[in-house]
């Protein structure tokens, strides 16, 4: 099972704090004044689990560009991370998988001016070789095919429901899974002939599955907002990371992972 809450990685940040503290103790002389634009300190980013690969790939180049900054990435389900930030978790930046979740943090006064930085959309996924001969969304209504969808109670299921409603298709699912990765697993194992997952999931699954673009899905996208958490002690560092994600480098990494331009 997945989505059991955020993946915690406190140890690196504690270790980093310890190092900073040690460095402070061992240098009796005041440090030389930092050059203008030079950043330091820890930047803690809470990010939706679907951003894991992209943000991990951006971390080394960001830390090379800002050698004084230690970036700590903490991934999890967006709503769980939002709840933690509202409860006072020490995050500097929050990147959510949907706008509604970000809005709960903004409404609670914990985030400033979120900016949409990328988007994800649904795609049909079939096992390699497409044994069911699936060509489009309409095949989801075929009772002879094994169809796996997300349950409407989870975000990918809500998106699938909206997509099918917009396309006027009554799907005949054989199973309504608890999260998007469970749908992907069923298709990877060939237990389902087709499923609806996010485009990034298809890219991440590699050669085990094939994606079929769904023109109807162009209008139903999950837009990902990013925002600086209000009251962060490292506002300049947080701002640098947001700018980095929004930069060409960030956009290229997102596109490579299957994200689409919002």
């Amino acid at each position: 099972m997945r989505d059991h809450g955020p993946v915690r990685s406190r140890i690196p940040s504690i270790a980093a704090l310890g190092l900073v503290a040690l460095a402070g103790c061992s240098t009796p002389a005041p440090p030389p004044p930092a050059p203008p634009g030079f950043l330091e300190g820890t930047v803690t980013v809470f990010a939706a689990a679907s951003l894991t690969e992209v943000f991990d790939s951006l971390e080394p180049t960001f830390e090379t560009a800002y050698p004084g900054v230690d970036l700590v990435l903490d991934y999890g389900g967006s709503s769980g991370l939002a709840a933690q930030i509202i409860e006072g978790a020490p995050a500097d930046v929050f990147a959510a998988a949907d706008e509604a979740t970000m809005q709960t943090v903004v409404d609670a006064g914990h985030a400033l001016e979120p900016e949409i930085f990328t988007a994800n959309r649904l795609e049909l996924v079939v096992p390699a070789g497409n044994p069911g001969g699936v060509t489009g969304l309409a095949d989801l209504a075929d009772p002879d095919l094994a169809i796996a969808l997300c349950d409407a109670a989870v975000p990918c299921g809500a998106a699938a429901q909206a997509l099918l409603a917009a396309a006027g298709i009554t799907a005949r699912p054989d199973t309504l899974e608890q999260d998007v990765k469970a749908v992907l697993t069923k298709v990877e194992l060939g237990e389902a002939d087709a499923g609806l997952v996010y485009r990034t999931d298809v890219v991440a699954a590699g050669g085990a599955v094939e994606g079929i673009e769904v023109p109807e899905a162009a209008d139903i996208v999950n837009r990902y907002p990013i925002a600086i958490v209000s009251g962060t002690p490292n506002g300049t560092g947080a701002h640098a990371w947001v700018e980095y994600v929004l930069s060409d480098t960030g956009r290229q990494a997102l596109a490579a992972a299957g994200f689409v331009t919002p």
Partner: peptide
């Protein structure tokens, strides 16, 4: 159950699966 049988109301969605899905909303 959810891995092998799946989860469809009336066919494979048992009480524990229904409880887990309800937890999401």
């Amino acid at each position: 159950t959810i891995t092998f049988a799946g989860s469809l109301p009336g066919v494979t969605r048992t009480l524990p699966i229904a409880s887990y899905l309800a937890m999401q909303t």
